[in-house]
Amino acid sequence: MEKMTTILTKLKLIVFLAICMAVIALILLQLPENQQGKVILLSNTDSEDKYSMSATLMHAKGVGPHPAAVLLHGCYGVSNKHHQWSKTLNEWGYTTLIVDSFSYLGIKDICTADDKIWQQFNQRRPKDALVALNYLQSLSEVNPDNIVLFGWSYGGAITLKVLEQNFATKKQGYSAGIAFYPSCWQYQQYLMSGKQYKANVPVRILMGQDDEWTQPIHCQQLLNNSKADSQQQLWTFTGAYHNFDDQQQRYQLLNNVRRESKQQPWGSVRVGYNKQAHLDAQAAVREFLNNNLSEQNKD
């Protein structure tokens, strides 16, 4: 009898452990993919505005020196999307640096922050991009003359500003830029002070045709106002909303977010992943990079 009880106890334990393992496996499957890369601390050493921020450095495959890319997040901060794009760029031969303008300050996002907070970051984030550029140019694995600036949403608007100014303290500035669904309306309202837009390097804006949060019409107006040439292009993707390239972004309606309107500055917008638009965007980005960087970095 005791032997039977021992066997039953062991069987219960085995079943319990099996259930635990299954639960753990299910949880792991639902977690975001582990990100690779080295988290570093970058510092702005400007005597009038010293501060630090974190960034993630991810290395290109193969022997360098490599072209490189700086990635700027939107108002929600760094997400899995930025790491996935970074990995894609690594596979294409690019060293990447994902700049995190928020977490070192203890900030999760500023999507619903007041105008004062936005104005502070409007002034600070172009400096973040410059600090990141100078850091990459200091690395032996990077070709300092071939560094591209990427930005998403709010980061896309900052990208447009940086590419217009496009200066570095000692070395050459960015070679080209990619802006995913930037708020061109916001750029005009808060950053441009009425000036016409003209980037100093090739720039491509990629947007969902049905984007309600940052509307393509404003970017079209921005480029038309500047008498855009082949160096400044807007590409839109049919049936795609904001955040169409984020594989973890389910289709949903976001309520009470900032919108591109002075009359109704807060409202609801649709967002969601679009696989075809994502694939088309990857092809468009690769073609753009191949056409606008040095011959040695083309496929």
Rank of each mutant, 00 (worst) to 15 (best):
E2N: 12
K3I: 13
M4S: 05
T5A: 14
T5G: 09
K10W: 11
L11F: 09
L11T: 08
L11Q: 14
K12H: 11
K12C: 07
L13M: 13
I14V: 12
C20W: 15
M21Y: 13
A22I: 14
V23N: 09
A25M: 08
A25R: 05
L26A: 11
I27R: 15
L28R: 05
N34A: 14
Q36V: 08
Q36Y: 15
G37Y: 01
V39M: 12
V39D: 11
V39A: 07
L41I: 05
L41R: 06
L41G: 10
L42Q: 04
L42I: 10
L42R: 01
S43V: 04
N44C: 02
T45C: 13
D46M: 12
D49M: 08
K50L: 05
Y51L: 03
M53H: 08
T56A: 03
T56Y: 02
L57C: 11
L57G: 00
M58H: 02
A60L: 01
A60T: 03
A60F: 00
V63K: 10
G64V: 03
P65E: 12
P67E: 00
A69L: 06
L72T: 01
H73A: 07
H73G: 03
G74S: 10
G77E: 04
N80G: 13
N80E: 12
N80T: 07
H83Y: 07
H83N: 11
Q84F: 10
Q84L: 07
S86F: 03
T88E: 03
E91R: 14
W92G: 01
W92P: 01
W92C: 00
G93A: 01
T95F: 02
L97D: 00
I98G: 01
I98T: 08
V99M: 02
D100P: 04
S101W: 02
S101T: 06
F102Q: 04
F102V: 05
F102D: 04
S103K: 07
S103N: 04
L105Y: 11
L105E: 07
L105R: 07
L105T: 02
D109H: 11
I110M: 15
C111I: 12
T112S: 15
D114S: 10
